[in-house]
Design a protein around this nucleic acid. Structure first.
Lengths: 332, 332
DNA sequence: ATGGCCTAGTAAACCGGTTTAAAAGCGGCT
DNA sequence: AGCCGCTTTTAAACCGGTTTACTAGGCCAT
């Protein structure tokens, strides 16, 4: 294993000189520089990253924490983040927190031990006090997609409220007046904002969101299905449902099929996320597109700005757009 | 930042003693041990992993390389692998190679610099000479799902041939005799094995796979669509298509829709992979299920066995199963 | 006492870089 | 010749652990 000392010997110089030259901290007279370059090439020298981390304190590695890397939106974000990190000369290590606070804290600890220069955190639960405390203690964290209450960190969020508005407007345009809302977990900022925008736009049209047609629960297919069954079994049925995540919408579809309810004939459905297969569902799902590319890219950029002490924006809002496909029928 | 020297001071011992005690390399008399434990607790000491790696040479981190973490099968494997690694006390760092040989080689280099103890490699191209050389040089690599020709490493592969057979048998049972095959890239072992099993079983039934009905190309929706168009525009159409990956099948569906060909009425379709949304497609796709959980879990286990010098199996074959849904109609 | 043999604990080198403070080399000026 | 100031290069400390080889102390047998 060839080390910097070998290179120094070969070039007839001191290790310090080699190190500083290779890191661009000094300029050597061309002839000396060439001696080093030649030695590096001849010995095929690669600096040992671990050693560098230990002494310099920088790992040149960023971390991305997701609750579940197998969830399409998250893996798409991870993919985009990896791209941007690589482009900027950093490496990205991806972690699965499985939504466990414990695991999140463990990963955040990597910041203190310098294994990670910074972390982009995607989280999915409301129990955030401990994480917030740690984030504030070390800094070097950006939040993507979902909030950690009380943490001071740059945030990259979707324009959830605008998305909610888009959905309301679309359904109203299509003639719907009896509209239900399948929400995510209570207290989750993404869900709350989507609801707020949705409700506001309904209100603007003289409609209101009925409390008994607002069903909270976790972001899962099962919750979507259960909520749909509740709605469809009630004496009065909505003509349209806004499920504020595509997984929920998939659950609604499953329930509708089981109950023999035609989509979109008897029930219109809108989702949120535009997971990459949402257009392939039956019927192709009308949904609000969140741009995973932008999340990943901007997340990494914001993190790097933070690390370099450049000014960062408090909250970046990633625009969303409505993708109208075939799961909404016009009524009236 | 509290270090081992601080703990040693607090406990009135030497750093070496603390280190060896904490790593279970020596047993101290209970009272001394307690002094250390107390000091650790009092100072909230956490060993610096980087420093440990540098001196001991072990990183307790495993790497998983995938061509594209946003591809459902891969992200599912990553998720399962992360689970198993954590269970065994290792951390898993996930990398996106974007199918670039260059990137793969860079990541493999982490083995030499001890950033990674071992690597589970998922690859997706046939240009494998350089990777094979490096793998053989350092060892500590297992191959998942796809081969790297010439590499000596434990392999975790699907029972591709068996899968191909299952599909052939199913289509034959449903009365099909005119069957086309949309293959993956030429030379890719998974595609070849699937074809081999498929062809063998057709042959056993007195049928043969027509060369002009065997279309190679990359694993992408576009290739699936193009192949489907070629098949559907020919004077004689097959009654069924086996697309040897679900992405390809999705492409076939798209093309069929565009050409107004009813599925499964006019064309039956079988995929391979069972990506998590394959059952949600229209029509729900009949496909061969590859168990991502098993891939991830067994990959990590095999890797750990390899690292510990325990005997490893040359090739583990992960069983597959046919999931019959609605994309195959019976004919004749 | 003396030596042999444990056990408990330690000093110091080491991993492979980075970084700081200082030395060496060199030309010009008095 | 002696000194200044500038550039080029280096010795040595450091990051925070691990590991090896060794010492100190206690016990038993001779």
């Amino acid at each position: 294993m060839v080390g910097i000392r070998d290179v120094a010997n070969e070039a007839g110089l001191a290790p310090a000189t080699v190190s500083r030259y290779l890191n661009g901290q000094i300029v050597l007279r061309p002839e000396t520089g060439k001696r080093i370059d030649d030695a590096v090439k001849k010995l095929n020298y690669r600096p040992n990253v671990i050693a560098r981390r230990l002494s310099s304190g920088d790992s040149e590695t960023l971390g991305l924490v997701t609750p579940d890397i197998s969830y399409p939106l998250f893996s798409a974000i991870a993919s985009a983040a990896e791209m941007e990190a690589t482009r900027q000369g950093y490496q990205l290590a991806i972690f699965n927190s499985r939504n466990s606070v414990e695991t999140e804290l463990n990963i955040l600890r990597h910041l203190e031990t310098r294994q990670l220069d910074g972390i982009a955190l995607l989280t999915n639960h409301t129990d955030t006090a401990a994480a917030a405390e740690r984030i504030n203690a070390v800094g070097k964290v950006v939040l993507i997609d979902e909030d950690v209450t009380g943490a001071e960190a740059p945030r990259i969020f979707a324009d959830n409220e605008g998305g909610g508005r888009l959905v309301a407007r679309h359904l109203i345009e299509m003639g719907h007046r009896d509209i239900a809302f399948i929400a995510g977990p209570e207290g989750m900022i993404s869900a709350e904002e989507r609801r707020a925008g949705f409700a506001a736009e309904l209100a603007a049209a003289g409609l209101s969101l009925r409390p008994d047609w607002t069903l909270h629960g976790e972001y899962s297919e099962d919750h979507g299905a259960e909520a749909a069954i509740t709605l469809l079994r009630a004496e009065q049925r909505p003509t349209a449902v806004f499920a504020c995540a595509d997984v929920l919408a998939v659950g609604v579809m499953r329930a509708a099929r089981e109950l023999g309810v035609a989509l979109p004939g008897e029930l219109s459905l809108v989702g949120f996320d535009d997971m990459n297969f949402s257009g392939l569902l039956h019927p192709p799902l009308t949904t609000v597109r969140q741009d995973a590319e932008v999340f990943g890219r901007e997340g990494v950029r914001a993190l790097l700005r933070l690390l370099k002490g450049e000014p960062t924006v408090e909250v970046v809002r990633v625009p969303v757009s409505l993708v109208a496909r075939d799961s909404v029928a016009s009524v009236g």
